[in-house]
Design a protein around this nucleic acid. Structure first.
Length: 278
DNA sequence: AAAGCACCCTGTACGC
DNA sequence: TGCGTACAGGGTGCTT
């Protein structure tokens, strides 16, 4: 489940190893991994293009090309983008392979085939609907307060909505709500001023800490950095995937409920459904 | 606006 | 041992 910190980690690694490289060949092994255009056009149009830099927007990896085109990659659940030396064996689940002029290969591996590659001349068409970047300068606590005031839905579901805020996924939403001591089922517009400020702070701090640690690689090994290494943030998780374990703050057992068809972890003691004292 | 569900996938965990 | 089934999850699209 690559989220903002994992995607940021991958994008930084790719920027390092891909900037300035020219694409010499493209092999598509699973056509549905290509979102647009059709796979043959996708491959044809990529060959000969030079990569200028690699960035991130929400959970999208944005590979910018000299022509003005952009190669957008969404890893979804199990996608990985790895840069490997020539001659490295293919490994399982390779869906797309891109050969580079220095002999290296950019390999898109994706066990569950949910990930997508999109080649477009207008990245805004794909990225335009995304909400603000949680770590961006224009995402202020005042703006967050205004955004929340118009919403009556559950805070947890809202934070997962990419049109509301870009980049958060299930892991970091659970962690940010725990740190802010806010119950996941609270209505967004019911948060007090102090709670909004706390949540704003924990969203940003948990994302920064996870980027610092190189992201979260769970036991199932879903996420790998561009160099194939694991992320270390898993050791800092307080509630995610910890049902029944004791809260590090109050030692009550962590509970798991389902919110919007998604596993949700929280401490029933620290995160009250109807707090009296906010 | 909000919520629920099916869909896309496959490895893993579980019950029998 | 092995089979069948439920489940996990990000995002989209449809329905209520």
């Amino acid at each position: 489940m690559p989220e903002l910190p994992e995607v940021e980690t991958v994008a930084r690694g790719l920027d390092e190893s891909l900037s300035g490289r020219t694409i010499t060949d493209v092999d598509v092994y699973w056509e549905r991994s290509i979102g647009a255009p059709n796979p043959a056009t996708f491959a044809d149009r990529l060959v000969g293009q030079t990569i200028t830099d690699v960035r991130r927007r929400g959970k999208w990896i944005v590979i910018k090309l000299e022509s003005g085109d952009a190669l957008l990659v969404h890893l979804r659940m199990t996608g990985q983008l790895l840069v490997e030396a020539a001659g490295t064996s293919d490994g399982d689940y390779t869906r797309v392979a891109v050969r580079l002029d220095n002999g290296n290969r950019l390999r898109f591996s994706d066990m569950r085939k949910f990930g997508r590659l999109v080649l477009t001349e207008d990245a805004g068409e794909v990225l335009g609907d995304l909400g603000p970047e949680p770590l961006g300068e224009d995402f202020t606590v005042e703006r967050f307060r205004r955004m929340l005031a118009q919403r009556r839905g559950r805070i947890k579901s809202l934070l997962l909505n990419q049109r509301f805020l870009a980049g958060l996924g299930n892991i970091y939403v659970n962690e940010a709500l725990w740190q802010a001591r806010i119950h996941p089922l609270r209505a967004a517009n019911s948060l007090s001023s102090v709670e909004v400020e706390r949540l704003y702070g924990t969203i940003r701090s948990v994302l920064r800490a996870a980027i610092e640690a190189g992201g979260t690689t769970l036991d199932n090994g879903n996420f790998k950095k561009a160099d194939g290494e694991s992320g270390a943030f898993v050791s800092q998780l307080q509630v995610y995937d910890r049902e029944g374990e004791l809260c590090d703050c109050c030692e009550a057992p962590i509970e798991r409920i389902t919110v919007g068809q998604r596993g949700t972890y929280f401490c029933p003691c620290c995160q009250e459904a109807e707090p009296r004292d906010r």
